[in-house]
Design a protein around this nucleic acid. Structure first.
Lengths: 254, 254
DNA sequence: CACAGTTAGTGTACCGGAGATACTATCCAT
DNA sequence: ATGGATAGTATCTCCGGTACACTAACTGTG
C-alpha cells in the first residue's frame, strides 16, 4: 500500500517529515503559494462543515482556489492528508497540573473530549497505526506526565494510556452515534420516531437474549431525561477504569 | 445519509430486516438463485483473502458468477453489505460458563479475540452505530450473562460492557498495527528496518516530550523477545479494567 | 544579465467503484 | 397460456484518486 519514499536525507520518511513539518522550504525554483498548513486548514474546515466524507481533494483545492493536483505537491496522498488533518484538529495538548493523578486524568479526558466536540469527524478517522503526529505525541506526553508520580513502571503507564485513550475515543463515538440515532436518519424528525432502539427492542426476544432483552426493555439505550446522561456515562466508565488503575498503584505500595 | 426505506410491513426497516433474516422468501415470481447469505459469504471470503478494501461489489459478484447489479437485490448498499459481513464474521457467541465473573470475562474476551484473528479485517469495519445484528447482540447477551450474579444494576453492566468491548477492539487493532509496522510497508523486509518506532524515537525529543521520550527510548513500542508479549499486553489491560469492576462490585457489598 | 536548473501549479486522461434506470428472463398462480 | 411478480443483466452516469506530461515562475550561478 503506502509508498514511504525515502526522505530528503534518507533519514525520516517523507510523510513523517511532513507531519512534523520538517521540510526546509526550498530556496530554489518557483516559490510555493500553497503549503501543508493551508491545505490541511482548508481540509479541516471542510470536514467541520461536511464531515470526513465531504472532504475530497477536488473540494479542498477548490476552497483554496487551486487545482486538485496541486495538492499533491504538499501531501503525498489523501490518506496522508487525513492523518495530517487529524493531528492538526487534535491540537496541542494543554499544560495541566492537577492535585492528584486521578484529577489529572479526568482533566485530560475532558480536554480531549472537548476537541472531539469541536471536530466531530475525528472519530471517523480510521486508526491505522499508533500515534505518530506531534500533537498526538503531545497528548500522550501530557497523559504520562499525569502519571509521573504514581510509581508505575513505564510499561504499565503505557498500558494505562492505551486503555484510557481507547475508552475515551470509544465513548465519544458511541455518544455521537446515539445522538444521531435520536436525531433521525435525514428524514423528518417525526418519521425518525421509528427509533432503532425501539426496533431492536422488538427484535431482541427474551427467550433468545434474556439479559440483553432486559436492557432494551428497560430502555437503557434511550435518552433519559435528566442532567446530561452522556456526561454521566462518560465519567462512569472513566472512573471504572481509574479504579483499576488505583488498584494497580495500591498494589505497589503493599 | 442512509435510506432506511420503510420495511415490507412498515414494521422494521429493510436493512434491519435483512440483518435479522426476516424476509419471507417470496413465493411469487422468478425464484432467487442468490440470497443474502451467499452474497455475504462470498464477500467475507474475499475480505479474508484481500482485506476489507479488496471487497468490491464487482469482485463479490464475480466470485458468485453474477453481475454486480444483481447484488442490489439482496443488500441495499455496500455499506449495508459491510454491516452484514461484520455480523456474519463475528459469528454466534459461544455458550460459556465459568466459575467466576472474572474468568467469564476473560473467556469472552479471548473468544472474541479469536474471531478477530480469523477475520482480521473486522477491525477495519467502521463502527457506525451501536450493535444491531443478531450475532452482535448475542455476544452482548453472553457478556451480560457473565455478569448476572454480580449484583450490578443493568446500567452499570451496560457500562462495563462498553468499556470492555471497546478495550478489546482497541487492543486488537493496536496489536495488528504493530505487527504490520514490523512486517514492513510492502518493501523488502530489510528496507523496513527503517522502523517507525525508530523514526519516532528520533523525533520525540526529551526536552519537548520528556515522558514520551522515555518510552520511545526504552523501546516500549518495539517487539520484545519473550513469550508472546501481545498476549501479555492484552491480558494486562483487561485485568486493569476488571480490577475496576471488582472495586465496583465490592462497593456494593460494603 | 541570461540561462540552466529547480520547484510549483495545471490539464488531461485513466482506472475503477457505487449505484440509477430500464431492460430481459424466469417462474408462480390462476 | 398468460399475466403479474420477482430475479438477474446491460448500460450509463457521476465522481474520486492519482499518474504523467506539461507550462509557469522563480533563483543562484557563470
Amino acid at each position: 500500500m503506502g509508498h514511504n519514499k525515502p526522505s530528503t536525507a534518507g533519514e525520516v520518511p517523507a510523510d513523517l517529515a511532513r507531519l512534523w513539518r520538517l521540510s526546509a522550504s526550498a530556496r530554489r525554483g518557483r516559490p510555493a503559494e500553497l503549503d501543508v498548513d493551508r491545505v490541511v486548514g482548508a481540509a479541516v474546515d471542510l470536514a467541520d462543515r461536511e464531515g470526513l466524507d465531504g472532504v475530497t481533494l477536488q473540494k479542498v483545492a477548490q476552497a483554496l482556489g487551486f487545482t486538485k493536483m496541486s495538492l499533491y505537491r504538499h501531501v503525498g496522498s489523501k490518506e496522508e492528508l487525513v492523518e495530517l488533518m487529524a493531528d492538526h484538529a487534535t491540537g496541542s495538548a494543554p499544560g495541566l497540573d492537577a492535585d492528584s493523578w486521578r484529577d489529572g486524568v479526568h482533566w485530560w479526558a475532558a480536554a480531549i473530549r472537548a476537541r472531539y466536540a469541536e471536530h466531530p469527524w475525528l472519530v471517523e478517522v480510521p486508526v491505522v497505526g499508533p500515534p505518530r503526529g506531534p500533537n498526538a505525541i503531545g497528548w500522550m506526553d501530557a497523559f504520562l506526565r499525569v502519571l509521573r508520580d504514581t510509581g508505575l513502571d513505564p510499561g504499565t503507564k503505557a498500558g494505562v494510556l492505551v486503555v484510557v485513550s481507547g475508552y475515551v475515543r470509544n465513548a465519544i463515538q458511541q455518544g455521537r452515534q446515539m445522538a444521531e440515532g435520536r436525531r433521525g436518519t435525514g428524514l423528518s424528525q417525526a418519521d425518525a420516531e421509528q427509533n432503532y432502539g425501539r426496533a431492536l427492542a422488538a427484535l431482541v426476544h427474551p427467550e433468545r437474549f434474556p439479559e440483553a432483552a432486559l436492557l432494551f426493555k428497560a430502555g437503557a439505550f434511550e435518552t433519559e431525561p435528566g442532567e446530561n446522561p452522556e456526561d454521566q456515562d462518560f465519567v462512569f466508565g472513566l472512573d471504572l477504569i481509574l479504579d483499576g488503575v488505583e488498584a494497580a498503584i495500591a498494589r505497589l505500595n503493599r
